[in-house]
Amino acid sequence: MKVLRDTSILFGRSMRHILRSPDTIITVAIMPIMFMLLFVYVFGGAIQTGARNYVNYLLPGILLIAIASGIAYTAFRLFTDRQKGLFARFHSMPVARSSVLWAHVLTSLVSNAISVVVIILVALIMGFRSSAGVLAWLAVAGILVLFTLALTWLAVIPGLTAKTVEGASAFSYPLIFLPFISSAFVPTATMPTVVRAFAENQPVTSIINTVRSLLNSEPVGNEIWIALAWCVGIAIVTYFFAMRAYKQTA
């Protein structure tokens, strides 16, 4: 299959970019790790979550922050490829057009997965423990992949349309901030009404609660469906706009 062949060649190329500048992975992982250290060792003592292990409580939110900042690099890589004329080069060659984009999407999934694994390792050192079985871990992986995919398609849009590098990655700042107004660090019950209403109804909270329940072998209830609906919904909408932007890319 030509599409698969082209995608794998171009995926190899972008992965080489990542391995050659490991600072992108470190930068993506370091900020969430800092937050984790800060919240566990500085604020942690004063935060009442009801959980015995605060690292366990905090980790899901930290992972989402990592993914939200990781996809800024996806937008950045798309932006540079477009600006350097590499898209034009590939598109004027007998290369499956969709491969050029999918290679970036796969790279985004893999590089974010690496960051997530690094952060989980650090969390283990800090005392994170999970009673989850293989199935629960697979479910966690599935939700995180879906979340990364949704944000990746979102990142494709500025990556393909931005006029400046800053413009290409600025969209990720509010996303990185979103977990702070959610159940990531403190239970939403302590928040003032308006903030609480926002926190409880934004996508990040349901995803965090689901991942947290899965990792602690607790029932996920309805929350998992809300989380999935958000991820799939965002993915579909952003995919539509991303493809529209891609059609107009020379």
């Binding site: 060649i9 190329r13 004329g85 590499l86 590939f90 004027s92 007998p94």
Partner: peptide, 28 residues
């Protein structure tokens, strides 16, 4: 049937010169 050399050099700066050529050769 064609090949385009655009107005501005379209090379992958992170890859080496040789890797750039190998990449295009594989794609072709």
């Amino acid at each position: 049937s064609i090949s385009l050399t655009g107005q501005f050099a379209a090379v992958d700066g992170i890859l080496t010169g040789r890797e750039n050529l190998v990449l295009i050769a594989k794609l072709r």
